[in-house]
Computed example of a mutant assay.
Amino acid sequence: MTAARLLTRALTMILGSLLFSVGLEIFLVPNNIIDGGITGISIILSHLTGISIGIFLLLLNLPFLFLGYKQIGKTFALSTLFSVIVMSIGTELLHPVKPLTDNLLLATVFGGVCLGVGVGLVIRAGGSLDGTEIVAILVGKRLPFSVGEIVMFINIFILGSAAFVFSPDSAMYSLIAYFIAFKMIDVTIEGIDQSKSVWIISDSYREIGDALTYRLGRGVTYLSGEGGFSGDDKKVIFIVITRLEEAKMKSIVEDKDPNAFVAIGNIHDIMGGRFKKKNIH
């Protein structure tokens, strides 16, 4: 990895970790709203003991960082450790700062946004801000549940605890903040202009392919397939589009063949090839 790429990754992790700290100390914590995972546990323990949140964030994440180093990799573990340290320092520095609002709804929304964007930036840079994800990855190998389901179960338990430590209202606002943060992580990682892969099976494949190329300015690839029931040779059109082009793509296909089979999937990353849009004259 070049020095420039390493510096870019470090700056991205610093920015993400500090945004996360802002979400906690400027919006959520002063209003008794918590997040899921290690962060939520740290907020609860800090409230009960009076010890700084930053200390709990660092200490509670360390065991999971060790597991991550052993099971996932050195680069991931070191990136996560760096991000967690910056986040812990950020919460310490921001703790004396007066919160921007005492309106619970505003604090929930803006706190959730800061948390989600912060986590998303750190993940894009190759790290993490919460050891819960590491636990979920390791436990998921031994249980018939996905990583997402395990994380959700853990976080529901943690967020529900806010009802007993703070109040039922705090628990409900915490769930809203968690949902907002969850969605913002997706937006930050995938981008607003998310890419989608499309597979189209139709006897009018040539007409559809030409129309997609001409009207969307996207290149198409024709793949050879075979019908599972009929045994007939089939042509499959493969194309990568943006989310904003999805409606137009469907209109083009329906216009050429209303009975065409269309499958659409989300793409998290694209490397190589020629994805840039061609100019349409």
Results as ranks from 00 to 15, higher is better:
G36N: 05
V109D: 00
I176D: 03
R206F: 11
L62T: 12
V84S: 01
L65M: 11
K248V: 05
N61L: 03
M1E: 13
Y173S: 01
G131K: 01
E207V: 09
T39H: 02
M271F: 15
G209P: 01
G68Y: 00
C114T: 04
T39M: 03
D130C: 10
G140H: 06
G209W: 01
P99L: 05
V236T: 10
F275Y: 14
L143P: 08
L159E: 00
V135P: 04
V147C: 09
A162T: 07
G126Q: 07
Q194H: 14
P99Y: 06
K277Y: 09
A177H: 00
V84A: 00
I150A: 08
M172H: 10
V29M: 04
L81E: 03
T12Q: 13
K248G: 05
I123W: 02
M1T: 14
F76E: 03
L81K: 00
R274M: 11
Q71P: 07
G227E: 03
N259S: 15
M271Y: 15
I34Y: 01
A263F: 13
G225A: 14
D269I: 13
L28K: 05
M87Q: 11
H268L: 13
P99H: 08
T39D: 00
G111W: 00
F64A: 00
I176Y: 13
F66E: 03
L244G: 13
T108L: 06
R142K: 15
K276L: 15
K278W: 07
G231Q: 08
F76L: 04
R142W: 12
K235D: 07
N61M: 04
R243Q: 07
V139Q: 12
G160Y: 10
L100V: 12
I89C: 05
L81N: 02
T188G: 03
S83M: 04
G272V: 08
D255Y: 13
G36E: 02
S251N: 14
L19F: 07
I185K: 03
G272S: 10
V165Y: 07
M1R: 13
R5Q: 15
I14G: 05
S161P: 05
S146Y: 12
L65C: 06
I134K: 04
V262A: 05
I43C: 06
A260D: 02
Y173P: 02
L175M: 10
L7A: 14
M152N: 10
V147Y: 06
L115D: 02
D203C: 11
M152E: 06
T108C: 09
D203G: 14
M172A: 13
K74W: 07
D203A: 14
T91N: 04
G37T: 02
L6N: 15
S21C: 09
